[in-house]
């Protein structure tokens, strides 16, 4: 894209958001909204500056992102090999499909009560919720990915001299990758929501906790600031990491996404 074109599209993207900000402040000023119902922009800005200055915001963000990172990495590390192994024999994959679907629709938030019972309130329970949101969805997708690779591609590799290990690295893994990436994107979506919910219930640090505590004191400016931070973090994660990854595999290779 030409530089001016790019600049223009960025401007078009941010103009409506700016308009929204103006509308927000105008509504607050004109109707003289009680700050306990909804804060003005300056109050939110002030809340952001203070919480950055005293380090609490960074602390909450750090706690939340650490949980996401740990849960996701463990989840992917276990689910990808397991899911792929389940998909190698088509008959086995067909047999296991209902089980995997059952557990992937249950993944995430529904595990919060039992997770807090198993691990107590805190890091363990929340990380477990994220882990299992990622685990079941990615394992299911990895299985689906491997089992839907056309048999002729495996035949082609074998007739060109590929052994089992080479077939795994050259055919099964890249062939299942689009599904795995899609699974990670979906699973992280569930995990992110599970994180916020779990942090409201089961901890004393993290973005969800920050929001829920602010509610106790009617600090709407902290709540709104937290919501914006949550939105921005997810946008960054999704647009800068997950979506490009999905595009690079699914679209470039011309592989149709299989659900």
């Amino acid at each position: 894209m030409r530089p001016e074109g790019r600049l223009k599209s960025i401007a078009y993207f941010f103009a409506p958001l700016l308009a929204l900000l103006v509308l927000w402040q105008a509504t607050i000023t004109v109707f003289d909204v009680n700050p306990r119902v909804f804060p003005g922009i300056s109050a939110v800005w002030h809340a952001a500056v203070t919480s950055i200055a005293d380090g609490t915001l960074i602390q909450h963000i750090g706690a939340s992102l650490t949980r996401v990172a740990v849960g996701t990495v463990i989840g992917i590390a276990i689910s990808v090999p397991l899911g792929m192994a389940m998909g190698v024999l088509p008959a086995v994959a067909t047999f296991l499909t209902p089980l995997m679907r059952f557990f992937s629709v249950l993944a995430g938030i529904a595990w919060i009560p039992i997770a807090t019972l198993w691990f107590g309130y805190g890091f363990g329970a929340i990380t477990f919720v994220i882990f299992n949101a990622v685990f079941f969805v990615v394992a299911y997708n990895a299985m689906l990915g491997v089992s839907t690779i056309p048999m002729r591609l495996r035949y082609a590799a074998a007739s060109l001299g590929a052994g089992p290990w080479r077939t795994l690295t050259e055919v099964l893994l890249p062939g299942a990758l689009p599904n795995i990436v899609t699974g990670i994107r979906t699973g992280l979506g569930f995990a992110w929501r599970g994180l916020i919910a779990a942090e409201m219930i089961a901890t004393n640090v993290g973005l969800g906790y920050m929001l829920f505590m602010a509610r106790d004191f009617y600090r709407t400016e902290v709540i709104v600031m937290g919501m914006i931070v949550i939105g921005l973090l997810w946008l960054l994660l999704d647009r800068l990491l997950l979506a490009p990854l999905e595009r690079a595999t699914v679209e470039r290779w011309g592989m149709v996404e299989r659900t």
Binding site: R152, L153, Y155, A156, A157, S159, G175, W253, G254, M255
Partner: peptide
């Protein structure tokens, strides 16, 4: 082997 449906590795 040359396959009817090509069987090229799309990746």
């Amino acid at each position: 082997v040359v396959f009817q449906s090509f069987a090229l590795f799309p990746w």
